[in-house]
């Protein structure tokens, strides 16, 4: 037996488009997840007890079930309730909603970390709610929120591999297809494992860089 990486590399056009698709789904999915998560966390903070309680249920359900089952439920079950989505939008939607549940918790912890005195001070100075969020809450919680957010982004990158199971042509699916056609499945998987690894390490590096840049916002210990 021998391993032959050349046959895989000869399909580099397909591979590159698969990698591009993975990065696209990852970046868009993570941004959407963070945005929805932020909105959910904000609604829970300002929407009253009822909204807070009502939003707890979907968050716990999403966090307590496998992403794969959520993905299948949306993609295969969706058409039965009039939600017929193509693979890519279904994958993006599932990824964003899944990530949003985790980001909502990250932002909730962030909101809680800001000393109430700062918010009260801003209120006394006549800041509007939006101004308080933008000028007080977000900058103060940024440093605390970055490490878990980067972590979540990395988790979402790895979850994008599951989109191959609903035929989104991202890199796991592309590599599986090439691997089966060329009888070089192991080589194909090793290759994309390395690509994922590099992307994960890069994301981690970027996160540490952002943390360093933002460290000037660190709150002085009271």
């Amino acid at each position: 037996m021998g391993f032959d990486f050349d046959v895989i590399l000869s399909k580099q056009d397909q591979l590159i488009s698969g990698i591009a698709m993975t990065i696209f789904v990852w970046v868009v999915g993570t941004l959407l997840a963070a945005l929805i998560g932020f909105i959910v966390a904000t609604a829970r903070r300002y929407g009253g007890v009822l909204v807070d309680k009502a939003l707890t249920v979907p968050i716990e359900v999403i966090r307590g079930t496998p992403f794969l089952v959520q993905l299948f439920l949306l993609y295969f079950g969706g058409p039965y309730i009039g939600l017929s989505l193509d693979a890519l939008p279904a994958g993006l939607l599932a990824l964003s909603v899944y990530g949003a549940a985790y980001f909502a918790e990250i932002f909730r912890a962030g909101y809680q970390s800001v000393p109430p005195g700062h918010v009260e001070a801003a209120e006394c100075l006549g800041f509007t709610r939006i101004q308080i969020i933008r000028n007080i809450l977000l900058p103060e919680m940024a440093l605390l929120v970055i490490p878990p957010s980067v972590n979540m982004a990395i988790i979402l990158l790895k979850e994008t591999a599951l989109l191959s199971l609903i035929t989104v042509p991202e890199m796991t699916m592309t590599a599986s297809a090439i691997g089966s056609q060329e009888y070089a499945f192991v080589e194909a998987m090793v290759l994309i494992a390395l690509v994922y690894w590099v992307l994960v390490e890069l994301a981690g590096l970027l996160g540490r860089f952002a943390e360093k840049k933002l460290s000037r916002y660190r709150l002085a210990k009271a």
Partner: peptide, 11 residues
Amino acid sequence: RGTPLLVQLLL
């Protein structure tokens, strides 16, 4: 920790 479990399993 840096590669998806799905890829590890397929591999």
